[in-house]
């Protein structure tokens, strides 16, 4: 009898020794992400676009991108101007390179702002509940009920009027409207995320490890940022990725309507906008920036999709 018990104990021990170390969820996610073919394709396209916009700047100067040569207006694509020229004779290849930098920067920075606000509002609202939650969520619902474009147009005017000069960043003269657009997009696109984070917090805060943290005497803020926030990172990461694509499209739409970044600072959006002069007669004016925008957003969507699948334990594809 005692012998049998000892034997059993030994089996347990050996089993315990043989058990492989459990992989962390992050490692699993990374492995799955790189098995996701579309996500990897997205990464490759994104790398190519970054190479084009940042690497291209070493071959073409910004003066050339902003250099208007009226003798060469509306030139169709040729060896001298692979993407053609615009209505004042600026080379579109150079402009898409420098415009791309601004467009991508607008996407990245505005999403950073949106993610910060959305996460904090979601965490606070979900964790504290009650009156704070009601006020914040009613505000979010009210903002969601206003058409985004109208909100953007109305906000855009006072911000752009308040800032009519150029600023210098990394040695480049950049229209302050870039900052205005970043703020506008950042301040209006956090709503959806705050609701996602809030719903996550609502389920998380009922769990035992939060109760344990309370009993150990952790403060509310410590619980929110040390215990709850890390558990919300996956959906935040996914919506940040997809948000970059969204922000680039919004910038393009605003610029296309003439409310975006003001020239001479180029963005993919305002290059497209110049094409409104005669989009049917000079299609190359919108084809190159249009293709670049589509490719960028496409690759971002691929990456976002890959991240979503990688973090989702339900999808066994590529697991």
């Amino acid at each position: 009898m005692a012998n049998a018990a000892a034997k059993q104990a030994q089996t347990v021990v050996t089993l315990g020794e043989r058990e492989p170390e459990a992989e962390s969820l992050l490692k699993i996610a990374v492995r799955r992400f790189f098995k996701h073919r579309m996500a990897v394709a997205g990464l490759v396209i994104m790398a190519a676009i970054l190479l084009y916009t940042i690497g291209g700047a070493f071959f073409v100067s910004e003066e050339f991108a902003n250099d208007a040569d009226v003798t060469q207006r509306f030139e169709a694509p040729s060896a001298a101007h692979p993407f053609g020229t615009d209505e004042v004779g600026r080379d579109l290849l150079a402009r898409t390179i420098y415009g791309g930098q601004i467009s991508l920067a607008i996407g990245l920075i505005s999403v950073t702002i949106a993610i910060s606000i959305g996460t904090v509002v979601g965490l606070v609202s979900g964790y504290f509940g009650g009156l704070v939650d009601s006020i914040l969520m009613r505000f979010v619902e009210a903002m969601l009920a206003i058409p985004t474009l109208i909100l953007l147009l109305l906000l855009q005017r006072p911000l752009i009027e308040a800032s009519a000069t150029n600023i210098v960043i990394f040695g480049r003269q950049i229209s302050v409207t870039v900052v205005a657009i970043i703020l506008i997009i950042g301040l209006t696109s956090w709503l959806g995320l705050s609701r996602i984070v809030r719903s996550l917090v609502l389920t998380l805060k009922e769990q035992e490890f939060i109760t344990a943290a309370h009993m150990l005497g952790a403060s509310n803020w410590r619980i929110i940022f040390v215990h709850i926030l890390p558990n919300c990172l996956a959906p935040i990461l996914v919506s940040a990725t997809l948000g970059i694509g969204g922000a680039i499209v919004v910038e393009t739409a605003l610029s296309f309507l003439g409310f975006g970044v003001l020239p001479p600072t180029a963005t993919w959006g305002n290059i497209l906008q110049r094409a409104r002069v005669d989009p049917y007669e000079y299609p190359w004016m919108w084809m190159a920036p249009g293709a670049l925008i589509t490719l960028t957003v496409l690759s971002i969507n691929f990456i976002g999709d890959g991240l979503r699948d990688a973090f989702d334990p339900r999808s066994m594809k590529g697991g």
Binding site: Q207, F209, P230, N231
Partner: peptide, 8 residues
């Protein structure tokens, strides 16, 4: 599915 916290 994970049955609880992811990282903590």
């Amino acid at each position: 599915r994970c049955g609880g916290p992811i990282c903590s």
